[in-house]
Simulated assay, not measured.
Amino acid sequence: MKSYVREKVVKLALAGGWRGIAVEKWAKLAVEPDSIAENPEKVFKSDSNCITAMKKFKCGVKKPSLVFKKTTNKFTGGILFDFIRGTKARRNFNLALELSARGIDTALPAAALWRRKAFGEMESILLTEYIPGSINLYDVAFGRNREIIEKFSSRKEIITQVASILAKLRKAGYWHRDSKAGNFIVYKNGDENWRARLVDLDGIKPNYLYLGKNNVRTLAKLAETLTRFRMVNFTDLYRGFFNYCRELNIYHGERRRWFGRVERMTVAMRLATAVADSYKEVRSD
């Protein structure tokens, strides 16, 4: 296995029982964890236990925009396990550093904060760098960027890079159990080419067992979330599958067998989603 060099990490001095670490270039980050969710510039996702949003933070003389994901969990068996292996924010912070060092395009971590409260309640916050002008793959599938939908070269760039990210994850010994379109963003880099990046690491797990099944599930989940939209071209999806196989040296007969397995699992996932959606409609009537 190739060696890799991670960025240097420093401890943050925080009040109120909070602990934190940051990448060295964010060592001067000024953050108040208890009020971090107040007045965000943009909210990406929010529910009773978690909020993902973007806002400006002071870091030295600058005020850059960062994405934060704050999670609050009550005491459960999973929380007990987290006491042993570390909070989700800290695990994802370290995982993002590792993946970035391995050349896998993922959200660049800035800091991880956590606090354990009474009765087993745990709070954790992961901060990552924000890329202005970025949109997720759901936005692309909805047709909210006409350039990508109408320009073959743009679609090819994006699907090739998404396939490369998933292939590199596999080669690094990981798989993504929730590789839905919303967990990838696309953006234009300095030379005006489109780039793709993985931004949600919650579903990434070590691939110790069932290697083939896990990787089929990764591809099928992404395909299932994209094939819901008429804007998505099946040829583009197959091109992504082809590039994924090529990067992993999967050819000819083996590739056809893989495609058949991915296709069957994608159909099964679509049927399960349709049944679940129908059940919700019946319950709401």
Rank of each mutant, 00 (worst) to 15 (best):
R19I: 12
E192H: 15
R228I: 12
Y251D: 09
Y238W: 15
G17I: 06
D191Q: 01
K156D: 14
V23R: 02
L113M: 09
H252W: 11
R195M: 14
R217E: 06
Y238F: 11
E263R: 11
M122E: 09
G78R: 10
L237W: 02
K168T: 06
M265L: 15
D200W: 06
S48W: 09
A53E: 03
K56V: 03
T235S: 15
S46R: 14
N189I: 03
I159H: 00
R195E: 12
G16V: 10
T235M: 11
F57W: 09
N73M: 14
L29E: 00
V186A: 02
R217G: 07
A22C: 08
R195F: 05
A53Q: 07
R246P: 01
E263Y: 06
G16F: 08
A181Y: 01
L66M: 02
F142I: 09
A172P: 06
E192P: 01
M269P: 04
S100F: 02
F57P: 03
K188G: 06
D202W: 00
E7S: 10
K180T: 10
A272Q: 13
R90Y: 08
G103Y: 10
N207K: 03
G103D: 06
F119W: 10
P132C: 04
K171Y: 04
T72E: 06
A220C: 04
K205C: 13
W194S: 03
G203P: 07
K221L: 13
E157N: 14
I79M: 11
K2N: 13
R115V: 03
D202R: 00
K213L: 14
M54W: 08
E98A: 09
N94R: 12
G173I: 04
D200K: 03
E121K: 11
V67M: 04
T106A: 12
K28D: 09
A96C: 09
K151N: 15
V43P: 10
F152P: 11
W175C: 01
T160F: 10
F81W: 10
G17Q: 08
E98Y: 06
L95Y: 03
V23Q: 07
A13M: 14
I159R: 01
L169K: 00
W175M: 06
Y187F: 13
K88H: 08
R170P: 01
D202M: 04
R115S: 08
T87I: 06
R264S: 12
K25G: 08
G17Y: 03
A110D: 05
I104V: 07
M122P: 00
L226A: 04
L237I: 10
I165Q: 00
K69P: 01
W258T: 02
A167E: 00
L97S: 10
P132T: 04
S278N: 15
A118W: 14
D277P: 04
N193E: 15
L66N: 00
N183C: 05
V282M: 15
L97W: 05
K88A: 09
A118I: 12
G17D: 08
R239C: 11
G143S: 05
E24H: 07
A196C: 07
R90P: 02
F119M: 14
N136K: 05
F75K: 08
H176Q: 03
R170K: 14
P64H: 01
I149Q: 09
L201C: 08
I250G: 03
P132Q: 07
E281N: 11
L29V: 02
C245L: 01
D105T: 10
E123V: 03
R144Y: 11
I148Y: 05
R195Q: 13
L113K: 01
M269C: 07
H252F: 13
R90D: 09
N183L: 05
N207M: 08
E129R: 10
